[in-house]
């Protein structure tokens, strides 16, 4: 059985910028344990000499010329912002 401690669940939640009630934490702990337990079947396979696949089709780095293209105007992009000021995205104070 894959074991995952309540502290680990809280640590992962912190990394993922999520917060949970105690009840939710317990539920996620159970869910994650069960899924990780299922996933552990991969350990039945010897993969020491197997190269990893990150992309299924052979692609090399794709580059493009570094040029400024005016695709959108500022107001169009800001229209979805929860809060804006003077043409910028506004967020709570981040420096004391």
């Amino acid at each position: 059985m894959s074991e995952i401690t309540p502290e680990e669940v809280e640590h992962i939640a912190d990394l993922a910028r999520l917060e949970f009630s105690q009840q939710e934490l317990d539920q996620f702990q159970g869910n994650l344990e069960r899924i990780l337990d299922y996933i552990s079947k991969l350990n039945q396979l010897d993969t020491d000499d197997v190269p990893p696949t990150s992309h299924v089709i052979p692609i090399r780095n794709v580059t493009k010329t570094d040029e400024v293209i005016q695709r959108y105007n500022r107001q169009q992009i800001l229209a979805n912002a929860p809060s804006q000021e003077k043409g910028y995205f506004e967020v709570p104070k981040i420096i004391e």
Binding site: I4, E8, I12, L18, L32, L42, T47, P52, T53, S54
Partner: peptide
């Protein structure tokens, strides 16, 4: 949560890299 766990420090090789190998 699952993805963050699989990519978190100390678990990358055991999960993400392993899965990419099985993907091969």
């Amino acid at each position: 949560m699952l993805g963050t766990y699989a990519l978190s420090s100390g678990y990358y090789d055991a999960y993400y890299l392993k899965a990419q190998k099985v993907r091969t």
